[in-house]
Design a protein around this nucleic acid. Structure first.
Length: 678
DNA sequence: ACCTTGTGAATTTTT
DNA sequence: TTCACAAGGT
């Protein structure tokens, strides 16, 4: 490796760009700093923070004011904090954390917003219901009978039965006939009518509780992704909604915020919610005279890959921003920059800041063979053939979907089987998040059991690692017996997760007190006890599997999942805990945002995001506005590599061969030989 | 022809 | 959960 040499002219220009930012800060001129991938945005942000501290730190300190630095993720906040060191003056956090801190004191105003939101929600429910045939069905009897119906179904026991039973016709036929309702072929209408009754009832009850003074406080829950308005709990989006409404309504709140934070720097502005920008715009309008304010946005509109981000419409929502651009790239070799430039269509083409920026490589490959059912061998063969790397070099393989990630990481069966239990958004995160707090509760228990197993399997365990946490007096004979028990758990014959569980519960029954204590730690005591059947019931109870599926069917699914081979579970464990020894690491395109890797393999395929031809459609007509997100996703993905990048397209590219070549050049072929076992 | 019911599949990520 | 679609009934 040769040392990279910066070009002096470019270096001077880079310095000049930073000076422009500082100048904007000095003159309270709100600005947006736009720079492509690998240009050093975070560096510029940190430099700007340093500038503010050195020039105005003392003044801010005296007035007890702070600099507000907003990031998109907690991880980014931690990153900036570590870049910057600790400062009492600069507050780095996500927008949600800080906004909530600013508005949670104003509960009176929040409750007013909340009432408004509930009333809007009631109107929406009513609107939806009025076009639903269920409404006619509900009104098909006398007013008195309708009221009896509503009263009956609002009884707690009936409510419970409604939600936990699929046998609606059998359970409710009698009572419905009594009220004059015809259930024949009207099951769907009946269900909708009851759900409407429940939804509007709980919102109305909440309004009453607010009125009576029982409910006085709105709470923000950052761990749950949707509002529970009737419990006075709001989630992320509604938090921003309320904050914006408050800022629009109350000049005093605007003044308080400006006075607390005269400098606001926003990282990754393209992903920032439009409401945040509107809020900033309100603050900007309020400032002036004695209340000076500076707002700086840092980001890249081409890297906007989430639909609720403000992206290119920043200027519409916050007018008159000074635009500062930087076109130099500090990350990648020229071969990579060329490809990512092909994807940019906003005129902000990058060039390396180095004079001798060579030594990278890129090529694009199409698959000659029929696409196999399992891509794992194919991909590892591709990497082996394409990148002849030193044996300790890591390769980072980027894929579109979590399912492919699981497949390539070796736990496809487990992923697909478990996915059935998580039908809602963020399903995959509940199962494969590296942040253990985000795992589903039941999945977390399974993870704990695998963690325990891996601890035993590794010979370098310490007693402290494997003993129960609770301190009790242990004789050396106790310890010896306990360890002998544990060794039985990693027996070769135990080849499925079910077999492992069976052994665990057998030991619980016959084993030492130490072991019992340990297992109680791993599986919290519950009504279901410590047996295999009990564990099925625990999962049945805890996993978010729809109660509308009959219990028998649910238990069958659970048994099927538990019966998957242990190697799948081990691969899954290694993925979640990031303990895999493999040199190839897998990521989704999305999750690599902001990161860089020396060697990148990109796996492309046709189908994504509900489209059977996500990429083909884009390549055939790349400038269609509705394909912006596809382009941006591809740009983010193709700008991660420092040295070497390969693309492998798994589906046929015949119908858009020429179109795609204008981005990636002519496709080379990749075929797999017969001796490789597919 | 229209309606109802059952079945199977579903994008990614953050707060 | 929500959507689309097939199957079956009126």
């Amino acid at each position: 490796m040769f040392p990279l040499k910066e070009n002096n002219t470019k270096l001077a220009d880079e310095k000049y760009i930073q000076d422009k930012i500082c100048h904007a800060i000095d003159n309270n001129k709100h600005f947006v700093f736009d720079a492509g991938a690998g240009a050093g945005k975070t560096y510029a942000l940190v430099e700007s923070l340093k500038h503010i501290i050195s020039q105005y730190g003392e003044k801010l300190s005296k007035k007890n004011q702070n600099v507000l630095c907003i990031t998109y993720t907690n991880a980014a906040a931690d990153n900036i904090k570590s870049n910057f060191g600790n400062s009492d003056i600069v507050k780095v956090s996500t927008i949600h954390e800080r906004i909530w801190e600013l508005i949670c004191l104003h509960q009176d105003a929040l409750v007013i917003e909340h009432k408004k939101k509930i009333n809007d929600e009631l109107i929406r429910l009513e609107d939806d219901f009025s076009t639903n045939k269920a409404k006619d069905w509900l009104n098909s009897v006398s007013q008195g009978n309708k009221e009896k119906f509503e009263k009956h179904f609002l009884e707690p026991e009936v409510k419970n039965m409604f939600y936990t039973s699929t046998e609606h016709a059998a359970n409710f036929k009698g009572i419905l006939e009594e009220y004059g309702y015809d259930l024949n072929k009207n099951l769907g209408k009946f269900r909708d009518a009851v759900k409407y009754t429940y939804n509007s009832d709980r919102l109305n009850k909440c309004l009453e509780s607010i009125k009576s003074g029982e409910y006085k406080e709105v709470k923000y829950n950052a761990n749950f992704n949707s509002d529970r308005l009737h419990y006075m709990i709001i989630s992320h989006d509604t938090l921003l909604e309320y904050a914006l409404a408050l800022c629009e309504k109350y000049p005093m709140l605007r003044r308080i915020i400006i006075d607390s934070y005269p400098y606001v720097l926003i990282d990754e502005y393209q992903d920032t919610n439009v409401r945040v920008v509107k809020l900033m715009n309100e603050l900007a309008k309020e400032s002036g005279g004695s209340q000076q304010l500076l707002i700086g946005y840092f980001g890249d509109q081409m890297q906007s890959i989430y639909s609720d981000g403000v992206s290119a419409s920043l200027n519409q929502h916050h007018v008159g921003l000074l635009r500062i651009e930087k076109k130099y790239n500090r990350r990648s070799r020229n071969e990579i920059i060329d490809i990512s430039n092909n994807l940019r269509n906003d005129g902000l083409l990058q060039e390396s800041i180095y004079d001798n920026n060579i030594g990278g490589s890129f090529s694009f490959h199409q698959l000659v063979n029929q696409r196999p059912n399992d891509s794992a061998n194919l991909v590892s063969e591709f990497i082996k053939r394409e990148l002849s790397l030193a044996s300790e070099d890591e390769v980072h393989c980027l894929v579109l979907k979590n399912e492919m990630l699981a497949e390539l990481s070796g736990f496809k069966e487990l992923f697909i089987s478990f996915k059935d239990f998580f039908f809602f958004k963020e399903q995959a995160q509940k199962l494969i998040s590296r942040d253990l707090n985000k795992l589903d509760g039941a999945i977390r228990i399974i993870f704990g059991l695998m963690d325990f197993r891996e601890l035993i399997a590794k010979r370098n365990k310490t007693l402290e690692d494997i003993l129960p946490k609770e301190k009790i007096a242990i004789s050396m004979f106790d310890a010896e017996k306990y360890i002998a028990e544990l060794d039985m758990l990693v027996n070769e014959k135990i080849d499925t997760f079910e077999a492992y569980l069976t052994e665990l519960f057998l030991l619980y029954k016959n084993g030492s007190a130490l072991f019992k204590n340990k297992l109680k730690e791993l599986i919290p005591p519950s009504e279901f006890g410590y047996t295999l059947e009990g564990f099925y019931k625990l999962l049945n109870n805890d996993l978010p599997i729809s109660k509308l599926i009959p219990e028998k069917k649910r238990l069958d699914k659970i048994k099927q999942v538990i019966n998957i081979n242990l190697p799948d579970y081990i691969k899954w464990y290694e993925f979640v805990s990031e303990t895999s020894n493999e040199l190839t690491k897998f990521h989704t395109y999305h999750s690599t945002k902001g990161l860089e890797y020396n060697n990148v393999i990109i796996i492309m395929e046709n189908s994504f995001a509900g489209s059977k031809s996500y990429f083909p459609d884009f390549f055939k007509d790349p400038n269609r506005p509705e394909f912006k997100e596809r382009r941006n996703l591809l740009y983010v993905t193709c700008s991660r590599a420092v040295f070497h990048m390969r693309i492998l397209y798994l589906d046929s590219i015949d119908s858009f061969k020429d179109d795609i070549s204008s981005f990636f050049g002519k496709a080379q072929t990749f075929s797999i030989t017969d001796d490789v076992n597919l």
